[in-house]
Nucleic acid binder design. Structure first.
Lengths: 109, 109
DNA sequence: TGAGCATTTTCCATATTAGGAAACCATTTA
DNA sequence: TAAATGGTTTCCTAATATGGAAAATGCTCA
């Protein structure tokens, strides 16, 4: 996939609150599709589709454990997003150190 | 607007390549709606709608100069996005400093 | 091999989005 | 005030996204 299209997919995937909730669940550790569906109170079919979208955007990946498919955050893609955000932060006059510090600090808690 | 909805709007706005191109144009400085439309080769009606979407997401704001409406990046919203990204970077095991450095470095070029 | 669980895919109905053209509105200038 | 410029909104059409139910698939175990 071309870079611009990847970014389209990533941002589009992030534009839905429930998909962000799925990611938040995964931030605590891998979960199966069924567990995720239950966690965000979606029927399994809908959840599966949202999860497929996150997977297509390469925000997550799946591994099989017996009958269940476990979803994991695919951290590398955040770099791409951070890159985009960073490029704009470049023009964020005089706030660059502040931004880096902010992210560091947010990550530290 | 509720925070989650703002984030929906921001990410949705960022999910279109041409809208990102509009933002990139604005990164170089304010431009009128007409100038932006020309820069990204869109008809003015379509451009106006995309620009309205960026404005609704508070990624940009407009000021009037005579007959023209100038669009400006609204930098503050990047903080919100950075916050979201940062929250996830938190789980980006062992790569936190790397991320901060990366953003700093990207911004520095 | 058959039964059953976990998930995906298909199908269908509904809803939302995007683009172009034309009408419309606001501001400036003759 | 009329005309022109810069943008926005409306209207219509085509395309796409979403949800639920049911059928289909993949894997595991008896």
């Amino acid at each position: 996939m071309e870079n611009a299209q990847r970014l389209d997919a990533v941002f589009y995937a992030l534009s839905d609150r429930r998909r962000r909730m799925l990611l938040a669940e995964l931030a605590a550790g891998p979960k199966s599709v069924g567990e995720l569906a239950a966690a965000v109170q979606m029927n399994i079919s809908a959840a599966s589709k949202h999860i497929a979208m996150l997977e297509a955007a390469q925000l997550i990946y799946k591994t099989r454990q017996q009958r269940q498919l476990y979803c994991h955050l695919h951290f590398d893609v955040w770099r791409e997003v951070a890159n985009y955000i960073g490029m704009h932060a470049k023009f964020w006059s005089g706030r660059l150190d502040e931004l880096a510090a902010f992210i560091k600090e947010t990550g530290a808690n």
